[in-house]
Amino acid sequence: MTTTPLLALEGLGITFGGLKAVNDVSFTVKPGEIVSVIGPNGAGKTTLFNMISGIYTPGAGKVRLAGEDVTALSPHLLARRGMCRTFQNLQVFQTMTVLENVISGYHLQESGSVLADLLNLPASRRRAKQAEEGARALLKRVGLDRAAEREAGSLSYGSLKRLEIARAMALSPKVLLLDEPAAGCNAVETEEIDHLIAEIAASGVAILLVEHDMKMVMRISNHIVVLDHGEKIAEGDPATVSQNPAVIAAYLGAENAAG
């Protein structure tokens, strides 16, 4: 692909009280590409996500979104520019309905005046209607259309994962960061999420994935980045990475690899 990357990390790093949680990590994600970040627990994957999505301010390096420097922008501004994410420990709005959860993703496209909302003016109602139609279409796409009116807190774990993806999609993301979308899901649910991710990527979204399910990672990734102790120790296509001695050492322990 010759297109410019949608997401580019340049020497990204952060230190927590002397500990280099992430150190000098660089890679890119192009439109339609699925890049996975893997590594043992504590390797800095979620920290990396938190820096990219603006929750942490990077100590070093740059984040570029479609070529533009967006380092350390606050999360809501990043979301408005098309950098969207889901969470490892789900962050859905429990007491809202499934539909409302997804509609809330349309907030930025419909951030009209508060006054219009207070007085229920036609402009406010029109925006609400458009958001609802869009949200219903998205729910259909992730297979939750029949649960639209249910309270989100009552959904199964796998459904909540898909709900979070639908909510992120409501923002029309350029880059979608998925933090363990298949964690805690059974085989059927994992496969559904697989298809969903592939479909989203096919529509031109750049996808960055953190996932522990290695089979899934090997199956859907175009490119894999391996982190260990906050540093990038390897990258490449799934076949290359799985043969890399440094990767095997990180996962299985150095002695095994040496032996």
């Binding site: 809501h76 509609i103 419909e110 406010s124």
Partner: peptide, 25 residues
Amino acid sequence: NLHDSPTGRALRALHGSEVAARTVG
């Protein structure tokens, strides 16, 4: 009116999870 409007929904969203509210813009 506010309760069911985008602004009201956003308010209830931030009450539910501030982190998630920020990441939906």
